[in-house]
């Protein structure tokens, strides 16, 4: 089962401030634990919303509006995510609890959302069949 842990932005992260050395070390250790347990899939930080773009579609249809950041509501922005692979929801919750507090002010929350199984590589039997067909076609075809 895969889960995504979401860390939300703060005024500090939006201002481009880097985490303290203490937090950086703690996060590194946490990721190491995840990696050692074979649970780590990805752990990434995101640049502040000043580097972001929003493409919004109106209910009425038509071309999207493309807006550059920054966007104002820090609490609704994601600052980082971690994708983990575990065998149960309880395990995911446990890992979420163990994440070092990423918020300098000491308060905040981490969000845990389950990921629908979406294989990364396309096991496409159709492609294989088509390719085999192609090679047979090549051998059958006469050169001009």
């Amino acid at each position: 089962m895969r889960f995504m842990l979401l860390v939300h932005a703060t005024n500090e992260t939006e201002a481009g401030e880097k985490p303290s050395q203490e937090l950086a070390d703690a996060m590194m250790k946490y990721n190491e634990e995840l990696a050692k347990a074979g649970a780590l899939v990805a752990a990434e930080g995101l640049y502040p919303s000043s580097a972001a773009v929003r493409i919004s579609y109106s209910a009425a249809g038509g071309k999207p509006k493309i807006m550059d950041g920054p966007f104002t509501e820090a609490k609704e922005l994601i600052a980082g995510f971690t994708i983990i692979e575990v065998s149960s929801k309880e395990e995911a919750i446990e890992w979420a609890r163990r994440m070092p507090n990423p918020y300098p002010s000491g308060e905040g929350s981490i969000e845990l959302r389950q990921i629908f199984e979406a294989p990364e590589i396309n096991e496409n039997a159709d492609w294989l069949a088509k390719e085999i067909e192609l090679r047979e076609h090549v051998t059958r075809k006469k050169r001009p």
Binding site: I93, A96, M99, Y103, G108, L112, R113, Q114
Partner: peptide
């Protein structure tokens, strides 16, 4: 169906 884990002091 998501879960929010509140963070206090470290850990």
């Amino acid at each position: 169906s998501g879960i929010r884990i509140g963070c206090g002091a470290y850990g």
